[in-house]
């Protein structure tokens, strides 16, 4: 399955991903329209600061997923793509999922008292946050593909050190 990966060197902290995520989960599907909506559309990823770096935190769609395991209402399920999603109408707002998520990326929609989390934008080819990232700090890849890219880069770094030596 394709997942959202982060290139930690690239994030500028502009939070465009957050806005795009909220708009993608709004009724009007555009920024200007989304502003007036009640409940306010919620974003499902967060740009945090860690040791001086900007770190976009996204749902890892873990397998097994602590949130899914912990959900007492059976409101969370894994879809055919492998994305962990919430079933409409089932969440009871106990926030157990929120408590157990190691990344803190399960949020809360206050008005309906339900959990909100990344659904990997099922209707889009590329998740809205990835499409919105101006520096390509967010990547939508197969895990193997992403790791291969990292290996390729690491190989270049090593080769260069050899060249310099």
């Amino acid at each position: 399955m394709k997942e959202i990966f982060v290139n930690l060197d690239r994030c500028q902290g502009c939070r465009s991903c957050q806005l795009a995520c909220a708009v993608a989960h709004s009724r009007s599907q555009n920024l200007f329209g989304a502003l007036g909506e009640t409940p306010a559309p919620r974003y499902r990823l967060y740009v945090e600061r860690g040791l001086g770096l900007n770190v976009p935190l996204t749902c890892r769609h873990c397998d097994p997923a602590p949130c899914m395991e912990a959900c007492i209402a059976g409101a969370l399920y894994r879809d055919e793509r492998g994305a962990v999603r919430r079933r409409e109408g089932a969440c009871v707002g106990c926030w157990t999922c929120l408590m157990v998520c190691p990344y803190g990326v399960v949020g809360r929609e206050k008005e309906h008292k339900v959990a909100v989390k990344c659904d990997l934008c099922p209707d889009r080819e590329v998740p809205a946050c990835v499409a919105a990232c101006p520096t390509r700090a967010l990547l939508y890849r197969e895990a193997e593909g992403f790791a291969a890219g990292v290996r390729h880069h690491a190989a270049e770094v090593l080769a260069r050190s050899k060249e310099l030596a």
Binding site: C14, R15, S16, Q18, L19, A20, A22, V23, L31, A34, L35, A40, P41, R42, Y43, A131, A132, P134
Partner: peptide
Amino acid sequence: TPQCGFGELGICCRNCLQGPCRIDPFGEG
């Protein structure tokens, strides 16, 4: 494109060296 939503909405302030500061248009941040 896509362009920065904070800029599009006019809620990014760069008027001092503590900024840029941005207001969360969805009221969460």
